[in-house]
Design a protein around this nucleic acid. Sequence first.
DNA 1: GTGGTCTAGACCACA
DNA 2: GTGGTCTAGACCACA
Lengths: 125, 125, 125, 125
Amino acid sequence: MIVLDYKDSRPIYEQIIEKFRLLILKGILTPDTQMPSVRSLAMELSVNPNTIQKAYTELERNGYIYVVKGRGAFVAGDTGLMDEHRRECMAQISEAINQALEAGISAHDILAHTNGLLEKNGGSK
Amino acid sequence: MIVLDYKDSRPIYEQIIEKFRLLILKGILTPDTQMPSVRSLAMELSVNPNTIQKAYTELERNGYIYVVKGRGAFVAGDTGLMDEHRRECMAQISEAINQALEAGISAHDILAHTNGLLEKNGGSK
Amino acid sequence: MIVLDYKDSRPIYEQIIEKFRLLILKGILTPDTQMPSVRSLAMELSVNPNTIQKAYTELERNGYIYVVKGRGAFVAGDTGLMDEHRRECMAQISEAINQALEAGISAHDILAHTNGLLEKNGGSK
Amino acid sequence: MIVLDYKDSRPIYEQIIEKFRLLILKGILTPDTQMPSVRSLAMELSVNPNTIQKAYTELERNGYIYVVKGRGAFVAGDTGLMDEHRRECMAQISEAINQALEAGISAHDILAHTNGLLEKNGGSK
DNA sequence: GTGGTCTAGACCACA
DNA sequence: GTGGTCTAGACCACA
């Protein structure tokens, strides 16, 4: 279900958080689905249970999952995280564009670039 | 000349690299200008000289400065870094837009967002 | 009769205890009323019978219910639990106020706050 | 500087967080004071460094301290945590009073109780 | 020296 | 079985 990239410089627990974050935000993991247990996921990824624990704790703190003691961890219901994520995406676009402008790239070139990209990848919407 | 943000989570040496990189790319530091000496900059920033050394080594490795033994470090002449930097900027825009599309934001909304931004900030070019 | 909040971080057995404690203290459950059987309540709440058992054992230990072997559990008669509960309430007020004073809030502000609250919520008594 | 209570049922790392939180909120630890290092505090409290680490991570996340890589952790400047803490205190008073009202204690008795307490402990303010 | 990550493994409360 | 806490100890980047 999840694949780690050992060449990635980011810590393992962060990769795990990111992977689940996207699975949840994209709706692949739906609300109240049970997450794999800390131990089973640790086995599956050949990673220490503490590392998974850390990832789950973080995911819970940020509202992506909720934990029922003795039962396990479950995907949280929709709580506006989607919207927050979209806002973050827009902010990242803004930042990237502003940096490009600062680097002296013309507004015209940037627009051409984004247009091309959107035509290619943003078809159905 | 340079101000550090101790509350920034990025390592200090990286902040220093970034600051100089931008000063050079924007043409504020022109080719062959002498860089501050490792020791003086360390004093000025109240930072360990090892940290400055590491930043300079990295800047040299990436072609932003060149070092003359016994004389000091100097800003490198234009060597296509500008172009490379611009390419990086474009790549970052692409990545940000693709993430937005994955998050389910419509091409239309993204375009509106970038257009607005470019009209506001990208005027003169 | 009882609703559990799985997103509450407190253990389930504690939530159950608390719920019954209040039902009894408020007189909604009167002395000698039969409590739901461990099994039926476990079914109703979709919870492990062990969890209900633990809650009942605790309620009995604290004098809120009594258990007749083979018959079931029953609400205990009034045994001064009311007074004890009131003392606990007062103690909690004391603690909260002392913490506020330590935080540097003025006695005047605290008094205004409590007065306002009592006027609004403490009307009939 | 800090004393642990092994009889306290709360986890060690939480006790440590709470202790520092109060030291900072009361102004005993002033902004930019260096926190004891993870290792030294671990030794002093005869506790595993990981446990201290966990406490510091949490304190940083909540804005009580900031960490400079390779240098150490420092008390954060005033950032409205004080106000937030006071609001929490007020909320706790509200909750305690409402519970008391629900328990059937009269507004009159509660007021007498709080008045007495404030006269005794809230003198100077 | 400083904090950050991770492993290996134990013990606990809870269900 | 499930997550939560903790110890003992290693290794790393950073300063």
